[in-house]
Lab assay of single mutants.
Amino acid sequence: TGYYDVLGVKPDASDNELKKAYRKMALKFHPDKNPDGAEQFKQISQAYEVLSDEKKRQIYDQ
């Protein structure tokens, strides 16, 4: 599964769309709200870390 799929956004998503999707998913799977969501929360955080950084995103998109 790709990072875009993890966040539920298209590859041409804007920074604002990425942030909005990340916040929505992070709230849904945060371990405090969803004890079984810890692994998914890590994936969401990693996806956002890469896609929100312009240089990392360019490398990922290659």
Rank of each mutant, 00 (worst) to 15 (best):
D5P: 02
K56M: 12
K20T: 13
P31N: 09
A26V: 14
Y22L: 06
A38N: 07
F41R: 03
F41M: 11
A13C: 13
V6A: 03
M25W: 05
G37M: 11
Q43S: 08
K42D: 07
L51E: 02
R57T: 03
P11V: 08
S14T: 13
Y3I: 04
G37S: 11
P35H: 06
D53L: 03
A21I: 01
K24R: 12
D53Q: 07
E39W: 08
Q40D: 09
S45M: 14
L18M: 03
R57M: 05
T1G: 12
S45H: 12
F41T: 01
E54H: 15
Y22V: 01
I44W: 00
V9P: 02
F29V: 05
D12I: 04
D5W: 07
V9E: 00
R23A: 14
D32E: 09
A38L: 12
D5K: 10
R23I: 15
Y48N: 03
D5G: 10
E49D: 10
G8P: 00
K20M: 14
N34Y: 07
Y60K: 03
D36E: 13
Q46T: 10
N16W: 14
M25Y: 04
K20P: 01
Y4D: 03
S14C: 10
K20Q: 14
G2E: 09
N16R: 14
E17G: 02
D15E: 13
S52H: 06
L51Q: 00
N34P: 02
K55L: 10
K19S: 09
H30P: 02
V9W: 01
D32H: 06
D53G: 06
P11A: 07
K24E: 15
G8F: 04
Y4V: 01
Q62T: 09
L51W: 00
Q43D: 06
N34R: 05
Y4H: 03
Q46V: 13
T1E: 10
G8I: 01
G2Y: 15
Q46D: 13
Q40T: 09
L18K: 00
H30D: 11
V6Y: 03
S14A: 06
I59D: 12
R57K: 06
E39S: 08
E49L: 08
K28W: 05
V6T: 05
Q62D: 08
S45V: 15
Q62A: 14
P11G: 06
A26G: 06
K28V: 10
K19R: 14
K33T: 15
K33S: 13
K33P: 02
Y48H: 03
R23G: 11
D12Y: 07
Q58E: 10
Y4T: 00
E39K: 07
V9D: 01
K28C: 13
E49P: 03
D61H: 05
K28A: 13
K24T: 07
E54D: 11
S14L: 03
D61E: 05
L27M: 13
A21D: 01
K24W: 05
K10H: 11
R23H: 14
M25K: 07
P11M: 10
I44M: 00
L18T: 01
A38H: 10
V50R: 02
N16A: 15
Y3T: 00
Q62V: 07
D12S: 10
K42Y: 10
L18Y: 01
L7A: 00
K10T: 10
K10Y: 07
S14P: 03
F29Y: 14
E17W: 01
L18A: 01
F29Q: 02
F41H: 03
P31R: 03
R23F: 13
R57Q: 04
A26Y: 15
D32N: 12
K24P: 00
R23T: 13
A21R: 00
A26H: 15
I59Q: 13
A38Y: 11
K56D: 04
A21T: 00
Y60S: 05
V50Y: 09
L27P: 07
A26Q: 10
L51F: 02
Y3M: 02
V9C: 09
E39N: 07
G2F: 15
Y3Q: 03
A38K: 08
D61T: 05
D15K: 14
Y3H: 03
K55C: 14
V9K: 01
G37F: 15
K55P: 04
L18I: 15
P11T: 07
K28E: 12
N16Q: 14
E39D: 12
V50G: 02
T1Y: 15
K42V: 08
P11W: 11
K19Y: 14
K42L: 11
E49T: 07
D53P: 00
Q62W: 07
D32P: 07
P11Q: 10
S14D: 11
K55S: 11
E17K: 02
Y48M: 06
A38G: 10
A26I: 14
F41D: 01
R57A: 05
A38M: 09
D32T: 10
Y22F: 13
D53N: 09
K10W: 06
A13H: 01
D53H: 06
N34D: 10
D15M: 15
L7T: 00
P35Y: 04
Y60H: 02
N16P: 06
K33L: 15
R57D: 01
M25D: 08
E39R: 06
S52M: 14
F29D: 02
E54Q: 13
I44N: 01
S52R: 10
D12F: 05
Y4F: 07
F29E: 05
S45D: 06
D32R: 07
H30K: 07
K19W: 13
A26K: 10
P31F: 06
D32Y: 06
D5F: 08
A21P: 00
D32I: 08
R57G: 02
Q43W: 11
Y3E: 01
K19C: 14
N16E: 15
K33I: 14
D53T: 04
Q46K: 12
P31H: 07
Q43T: 08
D36M: 09
M25L: 15
Q43G: 04
A47P: 01
Y60R: 04
G8R: 03
N16D: 15
G8C: 09
S52W: 06
Q58H: 10
P35C: 09
E49S: 09
L7V: 00
V6L: 15
G2A: 11
D36K: 14
A13D: 02
L7S: 00
Q40F: 14
K33M: 12
E17S: 02
N16G: 12
Y4M: 01
G8L: 01
G2L: 12
P35E: 04
A13Y: 04
F29T: 03
Q58T: 09
F29L: 02
D36P: 01
D15Y: 15
E17D: 12
K55E: 09
Q46L: 14
F29N: 02
A21Y: 03
D36V: 06
D5T: 08
Y22R: 00
D5C: 13
D12N: 11
Y60N: 05
Q62G: 08
D32S: 12
V50S: 03
K33W: 12
L7F: 02
D5S: 09
F29S: 04
Q62E: 11
A13G: 03
P31A: 07
K10I: 03
R23W: 13
K33E: 07
I59F: 09
Q40L: 13
L27Q: 14
S45C: 14
N34K: 04
D36R: 09
E17N: 00
M25I: 08
E54L: 13
V50I: 13
Q43Y: 11
E49N: 08
K20G: 06
P35L: 06
F41W: 15
M25R: 04
D53C: 10
K24G: 06
A26T: 08
D36H: 11
Y48Q: 03
Q40A: 09
R57Y: 04
V50C: 09
Q40I: 15
E54M: 13
V6S: 04
E17F: 00
Q43I: 14
N34G: 07
M25T: 04
K42N: 09
P35G: 05
M25E: 08
K42H: 11
D53I: 03
Y60E: 03
F41C: 07
D61R: 02
K24A: 12
E54R: 15
A38T: 06
K42G: 05
K10R: 13
E49A: 12
E39V: 05
K55A: 11
E17H: 04
K19G: 06
A47H: 00
D5L: 08
H30F: 05
D61F: 01
Q62N: 10
S52Q: 07
S14W: 02
K24N: 12
E54S: 15
L51P: 01
P35M: 06
Q43L: 15
P31L: 07
K28G: 07
K20N: 13
D5N: 09
P11S: 09
Q46M: 13
R23D: 15
Q43H: 08
Q40R: 13
Q46H: 12
A21H: 03
V9R: 00
G37N: 15
D12P: 02
K56V: 05
K56S: 11
E54N: 12
A13L: 01
D15H: 14
D5H: 09
R57N: 02
L7Y: 00
Q62R: 12
L18S: 00
N16I: 13
